[in-house]
């Protein structure tokens, strides 16, 4: 197969053929992106300048909603809060996933691919189901409350476990840990084992090998794992809706409200665009040096 394509590449006409093949291969995903990403984004950008969602005001273009957002400090605070929740979630995920990935890559031996599969299997169940499971676990008759009650540490079921900022973070961490472990694992797998031997040979003790070689070389994978949680978590709205309560509300809920309840699509669009911009800036700031392959976890 490869020798055949190499032989084909040798001829200029064949190069054209290859180019055609690439075009054919890239057309479906390109169309998909255009239809379901680029165009909706354009529509949303358009909407952000409309005076109203419906009626005659729809045709009036204005910067009113941008001004409204800039004046709305509560929305900005909520965005800031959501960024913090996303940051905390991603950091906890990295801290939990790193030892996991380290174990899989360096200690698990030949069974590591099987263990990796086991790690990912829970994410085959529905996203909603896994959140609801936490709702049960954290609920007033859930396992945590029961345990604390039976230990006598608390007098009555603490509702604070559920419907709180903490509940949101716990649930999100649970959901995302495998997806952070994957890029870190991939990053660790790419470290040439001779480097560890070289470090030991040069007099490094095990902890020095970790600090001087493994940790710095794993950073691209760590960053990729961090971003793969941080980016989707900033705009999260399902989890806070189910386990967040009043205390655990996030920016995504506000955006959803604008579209679903207040029917203020232009303001919702402004909010979405602002969030995208903030995440984009942060990602580019952090993500310089991260390769696409790191994000893909391969």
């Amino acid at each position: 197969m490869s020798t055949r394509s190499e032989a084909l590449l040798a001829r200029p006409a064949a190069q054209l053929e290859v180019r055609q093949r690439i075009t054919v291969l890239l057309t479906p995903p390109g169309l998909w992106l255009l239809l379901f990403f680029v165009i909706p984004l354009g529509v949303m950008a358009l909407f952000s300048f409309r005076a109203a969602s419906f009626g005659a005001q729809r045709q009036v273009f204005t910067l009113e909603h941008y001004q409204r957002f800039l004046a709305d400090t509560s929305a900005q605070r909520l965005l800031w809060r959501s960024l913090l929740i996303a940051l905390e979630t991603s950091l906890i995920c990295v801290v939990l996933a790193f030892p996991l990935a380290y174990f899989l890559s360096f200690r698990a031996g030949p069974s590591r691919l099987m263990l990796l599969t086991i790690l990912v299997i829970p994410s085959w169940t529905s996203f909603l189901l896994r959140i609801l499971a936490w709702k049960v676990l954290l609920g007033s008759s859930g396992i945590f409350n029961s345990l604390l009650l039976s230990l006598g540490w608390i007098e009555e079921a603490a509702p604070i476990l559920l419907f709180s900022r903490g509940a949101v973070i716990i649930t999100l961490v649970y959901i995302w840990v495998p997806f952070v472990a994957l890029p870190i694992f991939a990053g660790l797998e790419r470290i040439n084992r001779h480097l560890l031997e070289a470090a030991e040979d040069l007099g490094s003790r095990p902890w020095q090998i970790f600090l001087e070689v493994i940790l710095p070389l794993s950073l691209p994978g760590v960053l990729a794992g961090f971003l793969s949680v941080f980016i989707p978590t900033v705009g999260e709205y399902v989890t806070p809706l189910l386990v967040g309560g009043v205390d655990g509300i996030m920016y995504g809920n506000l955006v959803q409200d604008q579209f679903a309840r207040a029917l203020n699509w232009p303001l919702g669009s402004v909010m979405s665009l602002v969030m995208m911009l903030v995440v984009l800036v942060l990602t580019f700031g952090l993500g310089r040096g991260v390769k696409v392959t790191d994000l893909a976890g391969v």
């Binding site: 040439n192 031997e197 470090a199 040979d201 040069l202 007099g203 490094s204 710095p216």
Partner: peptide, 28 residues
């Protein structure tokens, strides 16, 4: 290995890619 009075030159060199040449040389 880290306490033996020997050093090794690897076939694939095993230079630390995140360090400069000088940092590699001074590693030990």
């Amino acid at each position: 290995a880290y306490r033996r009075p020997v050093n090794m030159v690897f076939q694939d060199y095993a230079l630390f890619p995140h360090l400069t040449v000088a940092q590699n040389v001074e590693f030990g």
